[in-house]
Amino acid sequence: MRLNPQAVLLTLAVAGAAWAAGTPSAELACAGCHEQAVDGFAANVHGRLAPFEIPDGQTGCSSCHGDVIKHQETGDPASVYRFGRDREADTQVCLRCHGRGAKAAYTATVHAEETACSTCHTIHTQKQASSACSTCHADVQAQTLAPSHHPLREGTMTCASCHDVHSARPGALAVDGRPNDLCVSCHAEKEGPYIFQHEPVEEDCTICHQPHGSVADNLLVANEPFLCLQCHEFHFHAGLEARPEAPTFTVGGRQYPNVMGAHGYQRSFATKCTQCHTQIHGSDLPSQGISSRGRSLTR
């Protein structure tokens, strides 16, 4: 017999599609009344769970809603567990699986007091971005619109990049160590450990930085030099007025225009400290002047 490739192709295509479509499951029966919930279920991770992942081995609708067979037989809503009536009880259902690990701490969090899992998570359909944070943290969301900001409004970071709402840690920070460890996971070059330290860097990044957004560049809580002047005095040249106010000044025999006039010195020393103290997060290289013992963070 001569094999017709086209017939084989068609046959196999149909057979393959039928095989891939899988066998009917209990969910198909649920779909009769709850079509919307069941339709997207396969696109949600809950729809793909295997029995061995679940404590009682029960997958599908029964996994969370209980005895769906009885519900199908009687039609009695009370015969299955219905979500949305008791937030704490709803959470406990989720924690039967998700509590096996760090999320066991969720009930110890502030978020568990007012937020159900389904406030942020899609249970029946494909995972979607949630903006639930701004409901209670509108002031923080507003800060992310400031001129200097992490790329949240651009969509490449989310609140969850730094916060774990399932954690009971202060600030719900998504880090096991101290808060600085969170920052240096992306800004590793700031961590050192350096020989010449800037003590507030070792103490807490948020002394100088406002991670949610700021008016000043680099997420600084205030612009320089004010930021620095909270803990340091001015440079001793900062207040000197240039006199006489010559149109040029000479360095090494070469003339430079004195563009700032009488205020050249003040402008130079009272505008931005990190033009000279560039290594403000620490350095292994000593600064030039001997009297600072290498600690001026200029190199």
Partner: peptide
Amino acid sequence: DSNYDLSEAHTYSNLDSKRWD
């Protein structure tokens, strides 16, 4: 050098911006 003058120093680091999206 006694000619100290910080009367304008507070203006050097002022910021003001407008942004439209």
